[in-house]
Amino acid sequence: MPALLRLEDLRKSFGDIRAVDGISLSVEKGEVLGFLGPNGAGKSTTMKMAAGFLEPDGGHAFICDIDVFAEPVAAKSRLGYLPEGAPAYGEMTVRGFLKFIGEVRGLKGDALRSAIDRAVERTQLGPVFGQTIETLSKGYKRRVGLAQAILHEPPVLILDEPTDGLDPNQKHQVRRLIREMAKESAIIVSTHILEEVPAVCDRAIIIAAGRVIADGTAEELAEMAPEGARGSLEAVFRHLTTEGRKAA
């Protein structure tokens, strides 16, 4: 299986703070990679660089083997990205917003209409399709962000906290959607909800202080727990990320 998303030694500092300190990873087609870490560990910064929004100080990002910083437009057209907080143009209707995203991505006519219909159905936005986005609840806004990301059925999906602010039913739905999208795509999902990892991810990476400190399946990670708490992802997470901070 070829890696559709590949990060090589990405680095980024803000002033004296090393937000991302040499992160490398790859995600294959059909794989969902969970991206875990405490707040401030560099998750969002890494994702921003992978999506081509932030220029790294060093390292490379490849989407479908296209260098994100050398050929940004070609790389971005193969990417669906849900930024942290799912920003969207509040004054637009869901319909208008998805139409805009589709047009920018070069979809027209029937192809555009069917892409919107499919994304709306998958994210169950039907009831609010004609409403302006700023009037929607947090859960719906998040799903508008998801709908925009999957609109063109991209080979690579980068989702920054896709289930944040959703109720349990909506979370379940979004996880199912991610599993479904994973058949054809490489997906990276950041989260700090650990129960999500066994539910949606094939593999997970834990980062702390801008570095990868663990990489494996949910079971493999759970094995790394300290004595007495074997099998608990939460124990692993706390153990590793507090250690990681000390080391840094």
């Binding site: 999506a51 929004f53 437009v73 070609a74 971005k76 930024p83 907080g85 969207a88 920018v104």
Partner: peptide, 14 residues
């Protein structure tokens, strides 16, 4: 302010 710049600049737009 609204953060949509992150959305816009990660679309295939120069």
């Amino acid at each position: 302010r609204s953060g949509t710049i992150e959305l816009l600049m990660t679309l295939p737009v120069t």
